[in-house]
């Protein structure tokens, strides 16, 4: 293949992409550590952690974060508990309607989530579940299912049957084979699906707003209200504080998920 010798065009593209992709996030990073940043200075005139102290000292900030952590942990864990066994079944067991059911989970992806949440909100309104912890958990589990079915199913499918057969052949019971061989083999992908779902739910505005608000204020709802405020730094600090650790976690999962795998998961 002809590969261009002079990377000049590449460099320009890289610079443009760098500015476009990283510029917005960099701005937030700078704001989070800026004490004074007035127009038209390109950089803040005073740096510091002042607003970190402001934010962390406020119970109206800490509470939504704790609420979000609790909601997200419960929803993601419950979703994992029901989805991972299902993924194993889809990958390894023969049962009637297997293809159709697996497909229905992936196809649920094709419905805009916001309209789904509207329909659920109306039902929950009648049932009095709007603004309840478990109401939000249920809806967030729905968001998690997307990641928790197809990634683990692909992971279980990717384990060569010979690995399990070898254990079975050496005298292990089927449970032992699952516990000692199948599960450890699938673990990296299972963990990746957990992290992906966790972060997605943690930052999900739509479900929290339609099902949770106003009684339950989650971290993304707090960010939504802070974003419109005059004091820029507060939302910036919140962004950096919550998103950066999540980003680091997500980067870890990349090792276990190939680009091709993601593309295939979306039907490419």
């Amino acid at each position: 293949m002809r590969r261009s010798k002079t990377p000049f065009g590449g460099l320009i593209l890289l610079a443009a992409m760098g500015l476009a992709m990283l510029g917005p996030i960099m701005t937030v990073m700078v704001w989070a550590f800026a004490v004074k940043w007035r127009y038209p200075n390109l950089v803040p005139s005073e740096w510091g952690l002042k607003y970190w102290h402001v934010i962390l000292g406020r119970s109206t900030v800490i509470e939504p974060i704790l609420t979000s952590l609790a909601l997200t942990s419960v929803a993601t864990t419950l979703a994992a508990l029901i989805c991972w066994p299902a993924a194993y079944a889809f990958a390894r067991l023969q049962f009637p309607g297997r293809q159709l059911l697996l497909f229905s989970f992936i196809a649920a992806n094709a419905v805009p989530k916001f309209t789904l949440f509207v329909s659920i909100a109306v039902v929950f309104l009648q049932l009095g579940m709007v603004g309840t912890f478990w109401g939000v958990v249920m809806v967030q589990m729905l968001s998690a299912i997307l990641f928790m079915i197809w990634i683990p199913t692909a992971a279980f499918r990717g384990i060569p049957p010979a690995l399990e057969e070898a254990g079975f052949d050496l005298g292990a019971s089927r449970l032992r084979v699952f516990w000692s061989i199948t599960l450890p083999q699938a673990m990296p992908a299972l963990a990746a699906s957990y992290v992906l779902a966790f972060v997605a739910i943690m930052f999900e505005v739509d479900s929290a707003l339609l099902i949770g608000a106003p009684k339950i204020t989650t971290m993304p709802l707090l960010m939504l209200s802070l974003s419109a405020q005059v004091i820029v730094q507060e939302a910036a600090v919140l962004c950096v504080m919550i998103w950066v650790p999540c980003f680091a976690l997500l980067l870890l999962t990349r090792r276990f998920m190939s680009s091709k795998g993601i593309a295939q998961g979306f039907g490419a």
Binding site: I25, V28, M202, V205, P220, M223, S227
Partner: peptide, 8 residues
Amino acid sequence: PAIVISYA
């Protein structure tokens, strides 16, 4: 996430 990029 959408909320982060919107604010950014």
